[in-house]
Simulated assay, not measured.
Amino acid sequence: MGTRIRFTRPDGKEAEGYLSLAGKANAPGVVVVQEWWGLQDQIKGLCDRFALLGYDALAPDLYAGTVIPYHDSDAALREMQSLNFLDACDQVVRGAALFLLKSSPKVAVAGFCMGGAVACLAACRVPEFSAAVPFYGLPPDAVAKPADVKIPLQGHFANSDDFVTPENVDAFEAGLKAAAKSFEFYRYDASHAFMNEQRTVHDRHCAELAWERTSAFLKKHLW
Rank of each mutant, 00 (worst) to 15 (best):
R49Q: 12
F112R: 04
T165S: 14
D74C: 07
F185Q: 02
H205F: 13
M114V: 04
K177A: 10
H71R: 13
K102M: 03
I5E: 05
R78V: 08
H202L: 12
A171T: 12
A59R: 02
Y186S: 13
L100Q: 01
I43V: 15
D41V: 10
A144I: 01
L86I: 11
L153W: 03
K181P: 00
D74L: 09
P139V: 09
N159M: 15
L53D: 15
N196I: 13
K177Y: 00
A123D: 02
A119T: 07
A51P: 02
A59Q: 07
P60M: 08
K145P: 01
Y186T: 09
E14G: 09
H202S: 11
V92S: 08
F157Y: 15
A64H: 15
Q154V: 09
H202F: 15
K102W: 00
A22M: 09
M80Q: 05
T66N: 14
D87E: 11
S182I: 15
G23R: 06
F163M: 14
W223K: 14
F183I: 14
A51E: 03
W223L: 15
V126N: 03
S130P: 03
S215P: 04
L101G: 04
A190M: 13
D189W: 05
G45S: 12
S73H: 12
A142V: 10
F112D: 07
A174C: 11
K106T: 07
Y55H: 08
Y188D: 07
F50Y: 14
R199Y: 06
L176C: 12
E197S: 12
L83W: 01
D170Y: 03
E173W: 00
V118W: 00
S20F: 01
